[in-house]
């Protein structure tokens, strides 16, 4: 009962924050609400017994990515144009997509079902990790060893994205307009 109450409370807060982001007119407000949304989703991941993801989401979503958005706003503009009239088309697209997705969930295994097909691989990891690694954290073992190639690729993607940002932003050529740094 308690678990369900907390569940519904956190999910309700998440939905409210998401709606608030859509309605928020100022960009700084939207960035802040994005951080709050990430932090709430981290809380919910913790309730779902996934502390590693929750940890990452709290550090990345609520911390670093909010700072990146704010830093971008500080060198672009903080003013967003007011939407003059209500647009019907995006709402229709979203409602339609949502309806199709909900139709798709109807024959999915129920929440928390231990027999769900998605757990077949996971259960094998759970059985093998204590024997082959003798370390308690299954997530680290799967991340580093069973899925080491994946993680290698992801690390390279992070490096590549960093290089992309540096290429886009670092040096100005002489003919580009001068900037005020502070």
């Amino acid at each position: 009962m308690f678990q369900q109450t907390v569940d519904i409370l956190v999910l309700g807060l998440l939905a409210a924050t998401a709606l608030a982001v859509v309605r928020m007119r100022t960009l700084i407000g939207a960035a802040m609400l994005m951080g709050i949304y990430s932090f709430l989703s981290a809380s919910w991941m913790l309730i779902l017994d996934a502390p590693d993801v929750a940890f990452t989401e709290a550090a990345v979503g609520a911390g670093v990515s909010t700072i990146f958005v704010l830093a971008t706003l500080s060198i672009t503009t903080i003013r967003a144009k007011r939407q003059t009239k209500f647009q019907f088309a995006p709402l229709a697209v979203v409602v339609l997509t949502g309806a199709v997705l909900i139709y798709g969930t109807l024959d999915m295994p129920h929440f928390g079902d231990p027999e769900a097909p998605v757990h077949r691989v996971g259960n094998r990891y759970i059985k093998r990790v204590p024997e082959e690694f003798k370390i308690p954290n299954a997530v680290t073992a799967v991340l580093g060893s069973y899925r080491g190639f994946d993680t290698f690729g992801e690390t390279t993607v992070v490096l590549t994205a960093g290089l992309g940002v540096l290429c886009l932003l670092r040096k100005r050529r002489e003919d580009e307009p001068k900037v005020v740094t502070e």
Partner: peptide, 9 residues
């Protein structure tokens, strides 16, 4: 990169 870019004058 983001913070060192600076605003257009």
């Amino acid at each position: 990169a983001l913070a060192g870019r600076g605003r257009l004058s």
